[in-house]
Write a protein that binds this DNA or RNA. Sequence first.
DNA 1: TGCGATTAGATCGCGTGCTATTTAGTTGTT
DNA 2: AACAACTAAATAGCACGCGATCTAATCGCA
Lengths: 144, 144
Amino acid sequence: MSSTLKLDQQFCFALHSTMLAMNKAYRRLLEPLGLTYSQYLVMLVLWQRDGLTVSEIGEQLFLNSATLTPLLKRLEAQALLVRRRSGEDERQVLISLTDEGRELQAMAKGIPEELGQTLGCGGLHLDELRKELIQLRKRLYDRS
Amino acid sequence: MSSTLKLDQQFCFALHSTMLAMNKAYRRLLEPLGLTYSQYLVMLVLWQRDGLTVSEIGEQLFLNSATLTPLLKRLEAQALLVRRRSGEDERQVLISLTDEGRELQAMAKGIPEELGQTLGCGGLHLDELRKELIQLRKRLYDRS
DNA sequence: TGCGATTAGATCGCGTGCTATTTAGTTGTT
DNA sequence: AACAACTAAATAGCACGCGATCTAATCGCA
């Protein structure tokens, strides 16, 4: 079998399987907050800036409305945010945090550090790695 | 907002979003083969060694039976493989490629290189990156 | 031999994530 | 004003991926 078809040597499989592992690690951390990792990402975006449209959130997270609409509805059902049509443009839906949603930020404060303890601990160049991943992502989107 | 909660600076988000982008790139490449990326991974495992149990495939791919069973059934429905109970241990299910499944390998030969052209092209240290991801994956599984 | 513990897969229910399509609102052009 | 083109979000249908649970087979040990 050609070496390029070997699983262990495939960069993409490393990416895929490490992401699954990371997702699993987040599940434990986020369970007390009642969030999935994707929901956590949406909350991160909104904690940074509130009142965004669905598309604006999607641009930041690289997700489209087919994924976001149901996800946002679930967060709304948890009373973390409110969805309302924009007055200026009735096509748009504005997403605003509730008090409860804002308060959740305090509970999430410790999460990056907690995960950092698992990831960090020497030998890894996470910041370098992050930059290369972002470069990679850009290439993948540019050429398709 | 604490800088550790900023999206752009989060390694994990870079990992997550890059994986989505990669998955999308694979979709185009694999569409002619009628495979998803996960199905392609299973085929990679089987092209390397045939007649594995569900668990053995799962160990290599870091997937459990809840994911694999329906996935393997779909591949069986495409006549790429056969699932049969082991004679020695009736609990186990052995997965064997059909001729059709083996023949598909030829069609997949070019895929790593084709994707490599998108990913490669200078500036990135994919092999280094791959090793660090694997190290990371190991840490995530060890500490949970 | 018998019976509790363990193991392998299968199943359930849920939450992503996607492509393709639909619906409703807006824009631009005549 | 009218109407085609465009846009935002929603929806449909599909395939993962998971924790939890179930079923059936095997193991272990008295």
